[in-house]
Design a protein around this nucleic acid. Structure first.
Lengths: 207, 207
DNA sequence: TAAAATGCCATACATTTGTATGGTAAAATA
DNA sequence: TATTTTACCATACAAATGTATGGCATTTTA
């Protein structure tokens, strides 16, 4: 199985993977040809035959968009969780997906929205607990009292948002944690998004 | 506003979602017709047109397997809430949907499962609160310790399930509420389903 | 150097696929 | 009652699609 791929074959395979992840469907020969600038489908056809011969894909004959990725398990990730967010003290956000969440969908997330898994208990009085999945929308303007995700330096937190005259306060529901005041002291402060929902799967052992 | 779907339209939409999950690609009209036992593609064609008209899908004209689920952009899909369930004292269950909630598409709805809104605080130590939406799967066998929905007479409750030798105990996490023991005294006892997930909207549209 | 593999194009063709059009029957609605 | 909506079937057709076959220049391999 360890047959080597040529540069173009590799590019084509990458394109198939990328299409499957981003669009959810496989392209047709014509679409692939258009993407690579080929004037003809048969060029793609031959590359696919090479890929199949080398065992990287499997084709369902006669069916459209029926390219099966043999390495799908390695490449296809249901839904990446981008990092863990501290409800208490800040936690480092990870550059890449640290985990995948099982329940989510098939159905793609809305544009630019993403999931984060919460760690820590500072928001337990807002009914958000360690292990919960928060759905974050980065395209909304925060209103006072809403729960937001923000980045301080290299860490991210989930807190309630309050805008005041010359500063922003990030408040934990839990009185054990003091409010974080954003002013000149946090030049790297960046609002990540608004928490629009919380989801918790009960299929694993509860309590 | 979200337009209402007929039963068959809803089934078809669910099938599209399910296909996208399990197969990774969208079916063709012919495949859908075969799945539902239709002898003709045009029947499917008209259902899809209805779905598109109501804004749930978008079709890429002339392209095969190009049914786009608008849920991805919508992020939320209206689902009926069938009733309210008491986490504390029993509440009456309603025969029809009492409300709808815009459920994020990432929240997975197992087949045949439905939604109930929780009222009462008896499960607050299990992190379920008044106003939360529970996703109930009626096709699972309950295991000890799992949270279930059960009907006693004409009322429904959400409790932890424990099967003992000659009886079943429904336990609240909150010690204020005493366990309900199911034996001969509850001839109308019926298990409704298992709580497989909890969702809470943070956008506070509807109280 | 000769042979094989690679990369790309062109043409041809049987199906598949989406879509338009028209029809029938039952149920819901006015 | 008349009208609309829903649900399904049949036929027809243009475009899309996968596939087969042949050709040619370049690169790699033997």
């Amino acid at each position: 199985m360890a047959k080597e791929l040529t540069k173009i074959q590799r590019q084509l395979l990458d394109h198939l993977i990328e299409q499957k992840v981003s669009r959810g469907i496989q392209p047709t020969l014509a679409e692939i040809a258009a993407h690579f600038g080929y004037k003809n489908r048969s060029t793609v056809q031959q590359h696919l035959q090479a890929l199949e011969k080398k065992g990287f894909i499997k084709k369902n004959p006669k069916l459209s968009r029926a390219i099966e990725l043999t390495l799908e398990d390695k490449f296809f990730i249901p839904r990446p969780i981008l990092g863990e967010v501290a409800a208490g003290n800040p936690l480092t956000i990870y550059p890449d997906a640290i985990d995948t969440i099982e329940l989510p969908t098939i159905v793609r997330m809305p544009k630019d929205s993403f999931l984060l898994r919460v760690k820590g208990d500072s928001l337990k009085d807002a009914y958000i607990f360690s292990g919960d999945i928060v759905i974050v929308n980065p395209n909304l303007e925060p209103k006072n009292g809403q729960i937001v995700v923000a980045v301080l330096d290299d860490a991210a937190v989930v807190k309630r948002f309050y805008k005041k005259k010359n500063e922003i306060e990030l408040v934990s529901e839990n009185p054990e944690f003091k409010p974080i005041v954003i002013d000149k002291k946090y030049p790297s402060f960046k609002l990540v998004g608004i928490v629009v929902g919380v989801y918790r799967s009960m299929t694993k052992k509860a309590g």
